[in-house]
C-alpha cells in the first residue's frame, strides 16, 4: 500500500453565518496512520476545523478531505469511518440516559434503524468502559457523573464504536490528572494496537506529548505543523499564546508552559 493521506486541506476558509471568519488559508496534509493533536488557544478554530472535516460546517472556500473523501460531496463516506466525541458542553444532560447506553450509542448510531444491540455490542461497551475504568458505574445515569467521569465515558463511546478515525474535541477538558492519564493511556494503547487514526483537539499538548505523531498548531489558520518537538518552538509559541509562553526540556522532550497550563504533572 502506498502513502495514504489521513487529512488534507487546501486553501480552506470557514465562516459562520454571523460573518465571523473562523478559519482562513488553511493548507496542510497529514499521513495515515497518525495520532494527531490540534492545539491552539480558545477561539483559534480547532472545533471549527473538526466540524468542517465532518461536514457539519461547509467551507466558504477551498476543501478539506479525510482519507481522500471530500467533506462536502462525500460526507456520508466520512461519517461511516468516523467516531466523533463533541466538546463536552455539547452533550445535553436533561435525559437520564445510563452510562452503558451512552457508550452503546457509538455503536448503534452506525447501524440502520431499529438499531438493536447484540451481545457483541454489549461486550464492546464493557471492554471500552474497562479501559477508562468506568465499568463499575455502567448503570449510573450519565448526568449524575462528575465532569471528568463523563469525559471518560465519552472516550469509551469512541473506543467501543467502529470506524478508522477517532475525532475527539477536547477530551481532556475539565479532567484531573488521574482521568487525564486514563484517557491518554487508553487512546495511546488503542492507537498502537489497532489500525486507526486519532485526531484530538486539546488545549494542552503536554499530557499527550509522548503519544502524538503530528501536531497542528492553530490560530485561525495553521501556524505550524510537525512533530511535538518541532512545534515547541519558542517564537511560534509566543506568536500563538503570547509573551508568557516558555519552553522547557525534560528527559529528551520539549514542553511548552503557558499561563494556563501548569507543569507540576511533568515533575
Amino acid at each position: 500500500m502506498g502513502r495514504q493521506l489521513m487529512m488534507e486541506a487546501n486553501d480552506l476558509a470557514v465562516r459562520y453565518p454571523n460573518g465571523d471568519i473562523a478559519l482562513h488559508d488553511v493548507n496542510f496534509s497529514i499521513d495515515s496512520p497518525s495520532f494527531t493533536a490540534i492545539i491552539g488557544p480558545n477561539g483559534s478554530g480547532k472545533s471549527t476545523l473538526v466540524k468542517t472535516v465532518l461536514g457539519l460546517l461547509k467551507p466558504a472556500k477551498g476543501f478539506v478531505k479525510l482519507h481522500g473523501y471530500d467533506s462536502v460531496r462525500e460526507k456520508n463516506r466520512i461519517r461511516k469511518i468516523v467516531r466523533y466525541v463533541p466538546q463536552r458542553d455539547h452533550i445535553e444532560l436533561n435525559v437520564p440516559m445510563k452510562v452503558k447506553d451512552i457508550v452503546l450509542m457509538g455503536r448503534l448510531l452506525k447501524k440502520p434503524p431499529p438499531r438493536f444491540s447484540t451481545s457483541k455490542d454489549r461486550n464492546a461497551v464493557i471492554a471500552a468502559l474497562k479501559q477508562v475504568d468506568m465499568d463499575d458505574l455502567w448503570e449510573r445515569p450519565f448526568p449524575e457523573l462528575s465532569g471528568g467521569q463523563r469525559q471518560r465515558v465519552l472516550v469509551a463511546r469512541a473506543l467501543a464504536s467502529d470506524g478508522s478515525v477517532l475525532m475527539l474535541d477536547e477530551p481532556l477538558a475539565g479532567t484531573d490528572s488521574h482521568s487525564q492519564d486514563l484517557i491518554v493511556e487508553a487512546l495511546g494503547t488503542y492507537h498502537r494496537e489497532n489500525d486507526v487514526d486519532i485526531v484530538m483537539v486539546t488545549h494542552d499538548l503536554n499530557p499527550i506529548h509522548s503519544y502524538v505523531k503530528d501536531v497542528l498548531l492553530m490560530k485561525n489558520t495553521v501556524v505550524g505543523i510537525g512533530t511535538p518537538c518541532d512545534i515547541m518552538d519558542l517564537d511560534m509559541m509566543k506568536h500563538v499564546y503570547g509573551p508568557t509562553a516558555r519552553i522547557v526540556e525534560h528527559s529528551g522532550h520539549r514542553y511548552c508552559i503557558t499561563k494556563d497550563s501548569g507543569f507540576d504533572r511533568h515533575d
Binding site: 466540524k51 465532518l54 457539519l56 456520508n76 461519517r79 461511516k80 468516523v82 467516531r83 466523533y84 466525541v85 463533541p86 455539547h90 452533550i91 445535553e92 436533561n94 435525559v95 440516559m97 451512552i102 450509542m105 457509538g106 448503534l108 448510531l109 452506525k110 434503524p113 431499529p114 438499531r115 464504536s161 475525532m167
Partner: peptide
Amino acid sequence: KEFIYVSVDMEGSIAHGM
C-alpha cells in the same frame, strides 16, 4: 432511540451518519 440521541447529542448523531 433516535429521539433520545437527538436530544442528548445532536451533533454527534449527525457526525455518526444519523
